[in-house]
Amino acid sequence: MENLKLNVNVAGVHFKNPLIAASGTFGFGLEYKDYIDLNQLGGISVTGLTLEPRKGNPPPRIVETPSGILNSVGLQNPGVEYFIESVLPELKQYNTIIIANINGNSLDEYCHMASRLQQADIHMLELNLSCPNVKQGGVSFGTDPKMVYSITKAVKKHSYQPLVVKLTPNVTDITEIALAAQQGGADAISLVNTFLGMAIDVKTRRPVLGNITGGLSGPAIKPIALRMVWQVSKVVDIPIIGMGGIMTGQEVVEFLLAGATAVSVGTANLVSPNSMIEILNELKNYMVNNKIFDIHELIGGLIV
């Protein structure tokens, strides 16, 4: 097992293995430090940051649906300044890639955040154009290819670190959006964010979520996420971080075969704090059992 080559390179950033904690499901990483060795993770995409602190949406913010969850957290976070000053110093003591997930209400806000993070000791920026739980910005930017192009282009000018653009799956043609991000200068693409959904309580006749609608994640979305990663991988030249419902090592392999260079694990972290370590071990076992010694043998290896 020790000889396995698991490291991957995404837009010049070196990950020791392809597993990244998905934004919003892993706090700032530190919440998990008593449960797992953060040094074993390929990377951590921290909880969605905004320029100013944000309270987030009213509760309830989560509801379980068959093999999935709907969430409507709404980007509750202490703001980018607090992250840089009070979180990053401790987080940087761990040997893992740190990705800052940024969210704005306007083009200006995105650029402002990217500028502020230029001097911060992070490895990558993830431009979230896909949050379904905020009224302004978020998904409304991510569904229009022209907007995706212009925001990516503008933020790229202000960013020092490699720029990942995170796509929403709530679109008719995901490849069109992915190409717009690539043309705008994205160094990598991550997909998918959550699918807009809702749940209703028939006893009270009210929506279960305080925000009425929420984002669907977990195993329920995996087949669609996988299809989207595969479609995007056929049209773009930049690396892809794939995600959506990964709960096992086997499913990491599926996303790699579909064309992802790395993957993110989200909902699984809500199920058990040590899920990512289990998934990593399953991935290693798969490789050993199938005599694969370099993870690159899997990336884009789908036989059609």
Binding site: G27, E31, P59, I62, Q76
Partner: peptide, 30 residues
């Protein structure tokens, strides 16, 4: 409150804590 991780990582379990004019969503789990 409905919960996810139970250990403070996902922010889905919050409740408004503070005073009428100065409150924040705090995590019920931690």
């Amino acid at each position: 409150e409905r919960m996810g991780c139970g250990i403070g990582g996902c922010l889905v379990c919050t409740c408004a804590i503070g005073s009428k004019n100065n409150w924040n969503y705090k995590k019920v789990c931690t």
